[in-house]
Design a protein around this nucleic acid. Structure first.
Lengths: 249, 249
DNA sequence: TAGATTACCGCAAAAAACCGCAGAAACAAC
DNA sequence: GTTGTTTCTGCGGTTTTTTGCGGTAATCTA
């Protein structure tokens, strides 16, 4: 088999499987691993694949490095935040949890919006203060080192004393049967309290988290009123939720 | 599974769920926990995640506090913060106001310090969370847009329920006759309450602000116990305060 | 403070990469 | 077909990576 042929074959395999092992290629093409290594090196040099110890990865599969502290799936979260805007009206009292989606929502709020946001998240609070007409209430208590939100009995108590018009809740995992789930005990308590203290609950989630699980349950899927993802509302993945009576946006 | 493949998988999991346990990853990928730990270490070194005991956290969840925009008179504030360190002992309950000097102090605290900090400042709170042994309490209430600290009746009430060992108070203006002063009504209320709720009051101030005036009075100069500036304690400017019984550092 | 979990360190085995080198194959020109 | 040149390939030996494991130190949790 000629070198060119091999290269094409290798490229084909990598694009098909996103990864390939030198050893497996060596066996398939019946050449020594050294040869494969040299092939992979060349292809990598041409920028067609990414060579790694033991084989190679497809370029598209390998996320570009350097995207260090950018928010994961920022585009999706922007879309979600924009969809969420429509539910906010002047004069509302709105509860929010933490998370990057919520923070993104806080960032893009219209400047002339007059509303009161009640939050447990430091970053969301900071973002809210950039909006001149928004009143920000922080629910104070012990600060959770993991999630950078305030947690504890005091927070829960304060939430219980509120009946907010809206609650934006960032979702970590949601499933038709499992409901809303998360992985931090303190955070779960806060989110559950928020769900109970709001007339309308709006869950924000990237579609990737839909139909996934986490160990701790916040509430039933049916307890949320609206689910916002970056997908089209007609998307196949969301239909089960729609038929459960949840509005999809 | 190739190492880079694992890394991609781990990154994906962390970005999806904000946090991940080494043990769970080890089980999912079927490699030893040691390997996972090494993976997490590498990813952390590349700045893609934040490694913690038992697993790792998403970076976007943990805003890098150190990335502050330029602070006025940072060197002076560093000196002050370093001097202030000596007053902090293990086990103390410490009240703090906001301001860049306080935030600087929060940043340089020794890693092994065990103490409880009660604060109204978002930036100080964020900084405190980087210290593993420090408990952070945020006094929640309305968030003041100007000063990024919480203000209001609820905050005052909570402060009054505390008797802290120490209070670090960032000074806006101080004068022998005028006492401690500030220019924001809400902030003044908070600072005054803190002074009254602490066994020992330590005022931190760049020398520039010594002998200046602001419209609103917090308390008499004599009510503070210790004054820390970037100057030598023997400095001419500070002698009047010393003779008033205030310790100078 | 004790007991359990997690982290760290060094080691050793296995796998992979690297380095020349020499023979084989491909190519071009005569 | 031959010949010289260039490129390619496999192989032995060495070096580097990667990984798991045992023992110990650090850390967390109740």
């Amino acid at each position: 088999m000629l070198k060119e042929e091999r290269h094409n074959y290798i490229l084909h395999q990598i694009n098909l499987h996103n990864k390939i092992l030198s050893s497996s290629l060596s066996e398939q093409i019946q050449v020594s691993e050294d040869t494969i290594r040299r092939d992979l090196q060349e292809l990598a040099q041409e920028g067609k694949i990414v060579k790694v110890h033991g084989g190679a990865l497809s370029k598209s599969f390998n996320p570009v490095a350097g995207a260090a502290d950018t928010v994961y799936a920022l585009e999706e979260k922007r879309i979600i935040a924009n969809k969420a805007l429509q539910f906010i009206k002047d004069g509302m009292f709105i509860l929010t949890t933490g998370g990057t989606t919520i923070t993104e929502l806080a960032r893009i709020l219209p400047k002339d919006l007059q509303a009161t946001f009640i939050t447990v998240s430091l970053s969301a609070a900071t973002e809210f203060t950039n909006h001149p007409n928004i009143e920000v209430i922080i629910l104070g208590d012990k600060l959770s080192r993991n999630s950078k939100i305030t947690v504890g009995a005091e927070t829960i108590l304060k939430i219980q004393q509120i009946k907010a018009d809206l609650c934006f809740i960032g979702i970590n995992a949601i499933d038709i049967l499992g409901g809303l789930m998360d992985n931090d005990w303190d955070v779960v308590q806060v989110k559950r309290a928020m769900v109970n203290s709001s007339k309308k609950v709006i869950a924000l989630s990237v579609s990737e988290k839909v139909n996934t699980f986490e160990p701790l349950k916040i509430c039933e899927a049916g307890e949320i009123d609206i689910l916002v993802t970056e997908l089209e509302p007609e998307s196949e993945k969301l239909q089960p939720y729609k038929s459960k009576g949840i509005q999809i946006f």
